[in-house]
């Protein structure tokens, strides 16, 4: 007689930058759901549990991920930890909390990989953002691609700390998230208390069937000569038609003949140009998918 295959463990990936509220979220879930939850954390520190590889605290098992580096070679250790949790702890739910600088797409690639298909079932990728700091942190070129990647690949974005911002700022945060990830499901939270359960891959196809998105890219150029008006129009038209790729965000200073440098902001495919009063060095940065850096550099006639 053969034994039936083990049922894959329901798993939530909980991403978010430092201070957004990931740990608060996990502690809240632990309190609500009680025993049978396992947590795979990047480090014990924030949960207040010390040392050792596996600890049990009030029926909650916490396993530390090896490393904590973003480096590729650490992934094997994560998969190994997950297998250990599934086989030895057999939890009803596994919460995975990576480092605050981890790319959600990388983790989804790992958790939804065929090698773990019989071990876990990734039900939701949840990203927690801090409504207080989100607008400044999501500016192009402030951080690397990880910050926007966490938004872009989430099934559910928890806009946390709503009690600390006014209605205008909250709306601006939600608009910005919608620009980055059109169609992303949002929920406002205070103290990261999520209402109900997260959707199971409702924004994208079922997690197991997801095809990986291409990697998000960032391209910068330093425009050389001043653009004439027709050249500027041609550039904006080419940009809006996707000639340089699928641009999510863009920002820079374009030198325009007779007008000095103009401040360019690209949001959701719309370009806005405004004069600037101070001196600025010509520069342009685009963030998005399938960006054609060579075409961009060719347009401006010099490399970055």
């Amino acid at each position: 007689m053969t034994s039936s295959p083990p049922i894959p463990v329901a798993t939530w990936l909980v991403s978010g930058f430092l201070g957004a509220g990931k740990t608060t979220f996990i502690l809240d879930q632990l309190q609500r759901k009680g025993a049978g939850i396992a947590v795979l954390v990047n480090e014990f520190g924030e949960l207040g549990i010390d040392g050792a590889l596996i600890r049990e605290k009030g029926g909650i098992d916490v396993v530390e991920m090896p490393g904590g580096c973003i480096c590729c070679s650490q992934k094997d250790g994560v998969a190994e930890s997950i297998r250990l949790i599934a086989s030895q702890l057999k939890p009803k739910l596994l919460l995975v909390e990576p480092s605050g600088i981890a790319e959600t797409s990388e983790l989804i690639g790992l958790l939804a990989a065929p090698a773990l298909a019989e071990v876990i079932r990734l039900d939701a990728a949840i990203t927690v953002v801090d409504a207080e700091t989100f607008l400044e942190y999501s500016e192009p070129e402030l951080f690397g691609t990880f910050f926007l990647d966490q938004i872009l690949h989430a099934d559910l974005v928890l806009v946390n700390k709503t009690d600390l911002v006014d209605a205008d700022q909250l709306s601006a945060v939600e608009r910005r998230i919608a620009e980055i990830a059109p169609g992303a499901m949002l929920q406002r939270t205070a103290f990261c208390r999520m209402e109900g359960e997260p959707p199971k891959g409702s924004r994208l196809p079922a997690v197991a069937e997801r095809s990986p998105l291409p990697p998000m890219e960032c391209v910068s150029v330093s425009p050389g000569a001043e653009l004439t008006e027709p050249e500027l129009e041609r550039f904006l038209e080419w940009l809006s038609r996707g000639g340089f790729g699928r641009v999510l965000r863009g920002k820079g200073f374009l030198p325009v003949l007779g007008q000095g440098c103009l401040n360019l902001q690209v949001v959701s495919g719309r370009s806005m140009l405004t004069p600037i009063l101070t001196e600025a060095s010509p520069r342009l940065t685009l963030i998005g998918y399938d960006l054609d850096g060579a075409a961009l550099r060719a347009f401006f006639g010099r490399s970055a």
Partner: peptide
């Protein structure tokens, strides 16, 4: 790496 720092940074 580009995941963590932008070209400007």
């Amino acid at each position: 790496s580009g995941s963590l720092v932008s070209p400007r940074t």
